Computed example of a mutant assay.
Amino acid sequence: MQTAAVRFRRAMLASVGVTLVAAGTAWAADLSAPPPASVLEAPAVPSWTYRFTPYGWLTALNGTQTVRGRSVKVDASFVDIVENTDTLVGLMGDFEARNGPFALLANVAWTKIGVDRGNVRSRARAPGVTGSLGTSLGLDIEMAIAEVGIAYEVARFGALAFDILGGARYWHQEADLSLDVTAAVSIGDLEVAGARAFARSGSVDWVDPMVGARLRYTVAPGHELWLRGDIGGFGVGSDFSWQAIGTYGFELGTYQGITFSGVIGYRVLYVDYVQGESRQRYGFDMLQHGPVLGVSARF
């Protein structure tokens, strides 16, 4: 018979053997198993973001308007225009869709404004216009300006980004010039009502190509400064045009995934356009400028 000591010794040896076999099996498995493959994450694909900004442009007019060969000098502030426009109607908005460095741009402004005799004065007549008219009574202009273009970010230095842009600017105008009839004048091409003669342009349309640049600077989180300038026309539509815009945007808050920002700034737009000769001559050599106020939505 085996003693208790012998049986205990054999049990201990068997337990140690099982442990060594298990350890050896695990060690062999670790040596034979290949290392886990590293996981490579695909780079994030840039997504589209959109910004829509309805705005008001408190525009003033300085320049010369020619309707059917009759030219008048216009010098009217925004207050002058508001005081003398029966219905000051405006539809204005700016849209941008961006994907990485690439952006699509669109802008529209439609206004119907009036300027009275205090801010309009007669100038020299066009060649071929005989006789004379008295002091001009007023000028009413219905005008639409629509821009489309593309922009591309060509450089970035921290918070400062530089874009180049190109596109086209479409113009539509209808101008009515009313004047006093104070002397003998050939008025066969004018509409006369009482002591007033009206020169009506009808619909005038043209398209200007344009090129420009833009600076975008993040002043602080949620605060951004934009500066833009462009030139256009080049004799294709107008003889020449240029534009300068500076705006400052500041976040107001986010609602249902849409970030709203206030926008303040200043916009200046100049164009020199002429078509026709003599009594068919139409010209718009005008500087439009004034503060810009709006609210943008980004999503």
Rank of each mutant, 00 (worst) to 15 (best):
59 T>R: 10
163 D>Y: 09
83 E>V: 04
219 V>I: 15
240 F>T: 10
177 L>E: 07
15 S>F: 01
270 Y>M: 06
195 A>Y: 04
207 V>G: 05
64 T>F: 03
186 S>I: 11
65 Q>W: 02
85 T>C: 03
82 V>I: 09
32 S>C: 06
236 V>Y: 15
86 D>Q: 08
275 Q>W: 01
49 T>F: 02
243 Q>A: 07
239 D>P: 00
282 Y>D: 10
41 E>V: 13
44 A>S: 11
39 V>F: 09
141 I>V: 14
185 V>M: 08
82 V>Y: 02
199 A>I: 01
203 S>H: 12
299 F>H: 06
130 T>F: 13
108 V>I: 15
217 Y>C: 04
197 A>P: 05
88 L>R: 06
279 R>P: 07
135 T>N: 09
297 A>P: 04
56 G>A: 15
8 F>Q: 11
115 V>K: 07
205 D>T: 15
1 M>S: 12
184 A>E: 02
34 P>I: 05
185 V>Q: 08
279 R>V: 13
286 M>N: 10
13 L>C: 07
253 G>A: 08
190 L>A: 13
125 R>S: 12
195 A>Q: 11
207 V>L: 15
128 G>S: 01
75 D>S: 12
221 P>L: 12
273 Y>G: 05
51 R>M: 08
190 L>Y: 14
159 A>M: 09
99 N>V: 12
177 L>S: 11
162 F>A: 00
127 P>G: 06
197 A>G: 13
177 L>R: 08
135 T>A: 11
24 G>M: 05
129 V>C: 03
244 A>T: 09
98 R>G: 02
80 D>S: 00
161 A>Q: 13
1 M>V: 12
138 G>P: 05
